Simulated scan of single mutants.
Amino acid sequence: MSIQLTEAAARHVKMQADKTGNPTSLRLGVRTSGCSGFMYTVDYADDVQDNDAVYEQHGVKVVISRKSLPFLEGMEVDFVRDGLNHRLEFRNPNVKDACGCGESFTV
């Protein structure tokens, strides 16, 4: 299994990277937080460490630390527009429950 990045998400990452001058590498992870246990972390990846897994799709590298990988394995990242709102959406098969506000999740 791996992490899937949709074409829409890749276009969004590339567009934001071009605007800000950041690399077209996306770092995903999890950290302890919220009422359910974990929350996603999203940032640009300036470099790749020895303990990172790297997946490349649609011209974008997705970098994940091996520590976060068990929580994210099999996840799909999409870019969704809903009216005036838009966001990265995480479809994670490992999530067993999420808090009501959507801030955190349980695996």
Results as ranks from 00 to 15, higher is better:
Met75Glu: 07
Gly34Lys: 06
Thr20Ser: 12
Val77Arg: 09
Thr24Glu: 12
Gly37Ala: 13
Asp43His: 05
Ala10Trp: 06
Glu56Pro: 03
Ala9Asn: 02
Pro23Asp: 06
Ala10Asn: 05
Gly29Ile: 00
Arg66Met: 06
Met75Ser: 13
Pro70Lys: 00
Thr41Val: 15
Glu73Thr: 01
Leu69Phe: 06
Val80Trp: 12
Val48Gln: 06
Thr32Ser: 13
Val80Cys: 07
Tyr40Trp: 06
Phe71Cys: 05
Phe90Cys: 03
Asp78Gly: 02
Val30Pro: 02
Leu26Asn: 04
Ser25Pro: 11
Phe38Thr: 06
Ala45Gly: 09
Val62Ser: 01
Ala17Gln: 07
Ser33Asp: 15
Asp43Met: 11
Pro23Met: 06
His86Gln: 14
Gln57Gly: 05
Pro70Ser: 03
Ala8Leu: 05
Val48Ala: 05
Arg87His: 15
Glu73Trp: 14
Asp52Ser: 03
Lys14Leu: 06
Val62Glu: 03
Gly34Arg: 07
Thr20Ile: 13
Leu28Lys: 02
Tyr44Val: 14
Asp43Ser: 15
Asn51Thr: 13
Glu56Leu: 08
Ser68Pro: 00
Glu7Ile: 00
Gly83Pro: 05
Ser68Met: 02
Tyr55Glu: 13
Glu73Cys: 10
Ala8Gly: 02
Asn51His: 09
Val13Glu: 02
Val60Pro: 01
Gly34Met: 10
Gln16Trp: 14
Val63Lys: 03
Val62Asn: 01
Ile64Glu: 03
Gly29Leu: 10
Ser25Trp: 03
Thr20Met: 10
Thr32Glu: 13
Gln49Pro: 06
Arg27Trp: 00
Ala8His: 04
Asp47Leu: 09
Val63Ile: 01
Val62Thr: 05
His58Thr: 00
Ala8Trp: 07
Ala8Thr: 10
Asp78Glu: 10
Val54Gly: 01
Asp46Pro: 09
Arg27Glu: 10
Gly34Pro: 01
Gly37Glu: 08
Arg31Val: 07
Phe38Leu: 15
Met39Gly: 15
Arg27Asn: 08
Leu84Arg: 14
Lys14Asn: 07
Leu72Cys: 01
Met39Trp: 12
Pro23Trp: 08
Gly29Glu: 08
Met39Ala: 15
Gly34Asn: 06
Glu73Asp: 13
Val77Leu: 14
Ala45Cys: 09
Ile64Lys: 04
Gly74Leu: 07
Val48Ser: 02
